[in-house]
């Protein structure tokens, strides 16, 4: 449904997006990750058709953003960063304005607005000025305008940024509900979002794609992937325990950290492709250690993200020569 072909954007001598290509299919939720200034928002703005690419093209449901920008915009719902809206308007007035701008009139517009209000649970605030709403409700108003015309493509820039955990959960649930019928791109720098809502992730830095895969594949790149997290209550020397854990044949390395009174946490990293949970469990039993926690880690996305985005030389962008 979204087909990005060699998309490039230069701002003067600064190349913000550098020859990126990818596809998003119906039913996919693509997490578009990257540090600030990586080119995420610029890419989103090119896909939504209001920044013209320097080179390349984006096809939305087979139509080019360059050849048919208006038609493409009819197929896309877009939530810009911060969910901007007109503060003096009420959600009802705002959504009606959007409906009419999108070409809906009369009863048709009413139906679209009411459906959007129901989907994001805005009923209690529809006649209050947007300026007086909480951040969570403002974000819902932003979501409502994005889904008002039931678009095939949804593009959301930092949809949960700045929300409290409950509000984040609500927004993520809404994204999951819509995911089956649409192609969704979620730009974020919140890594927990990847596992929470995305079926696929792309990491971009310096305007280039550095990773494209599933959340599990992303986690697998962590040195903590399949590591065993072991929390012990003990008065023994941590280094002595660490030495014992290091004797395990499938262990590649062991780290430890104090976790409170008489509590020490150990991270036992396995050799690639090997499970080490049973070995650690048996060692703990044979040594009569008091185990408070024992589980296998998925991997630390922070670490993978840092590895991927800082391995490239300059995160500020590429100067054209």
């Amino acid at each position: 449904m979204i087909n990005i072909e060699k998309l490039t954007k230069d701002f003067g001598p600064f190349r913000a997006v550098d020859d990126i290509s990818f596809e998003v299919k119906k039913g996919e939720v693509l997490g578009f990750l990257g540090p600030n200034g990586a080119g995420k928002s610029t890419t989103m703005k090119m896909i939504t058709g209001f920044i013209t690419p320097t080179k390349g093209d984006a096809k939305i449901c087979g139509e080019s953003i360059l050849d048919a920008p208006i038609s493409v915009k009819q197929k896309i719902g877009y939530l810009p960063e911060g969910a901007p809206a007109y503060p003096d308007m009420t959600p009802f007035e705002f959504l009606h304005f959007i409906a009419e701008i999108r070409g809906f009139t009369g009863e048709d517009a009413n139906v679209k607005v009411n459906n959007a209000i129901k989907k994001v649970n805005l009923e209690s605030v529809i006649h209050k000025p947007i300026d007086n709403l909480s951040k969570g409700f403002k974000r819902r108003v932003g979501l409502a305008q994005a889904i008002l015309h039931d678009p095939e493509i949804l593009i959301m820039d930092e949809p949960t940024d700045g929300l409290d955990p409950n509000q984040k959960h609500e927004v993520r649930e809404l994204i999951k509900q819509m995911a089956k019928e649409k192609a969704i791109v979620v730009s974020t720098h919140i890594l927990e979002e990847v596992h929470a809502v995305c079926s696929r992730a792309i990491i971009i830095a310096q305007g280039k794609i550095l990773f494209d895969g599933t959340p599990d594949e992303l986690s697998a790149r962590s040195s903590f992937h399949n590591a065993v997290n072991l929390l012990l209550e003990t008065k023994d020397d941590a280094l002595a325990i660490e030495a014992k854990l290091n004797t395990l044949s499938h262990a590649s390395s062991v780290e430890h950290a104090a976790a409170g009174d008489n509590l020490i946490r150990f991270f036992v990293k396995p050799k690639k492709g090997v499970s080490i949970l049973n070995d650690v469990n048996e060692l703990a039993a044979s040594n009569h250690w008091t185990v408070k926690e024992l589980h296998v880690m998925e991997g630390q996305l922070d670490e993978v993200f840092r590895d991927i985005t800082t391995s490239s030389s300059d995160a500020k962008g590429v100067q054209l020569t």
Partner: peptide, 14 residues
């Protein structure tokens, strides 16, 4: 400055 220009430009309006 409000960010609503991004919104307006994303709608099917020239």
């Amino acid at each position: 400055e409000r960010g609503t220009l991004d919104l307006l430009l994303s709608y099917p309006i020239s």
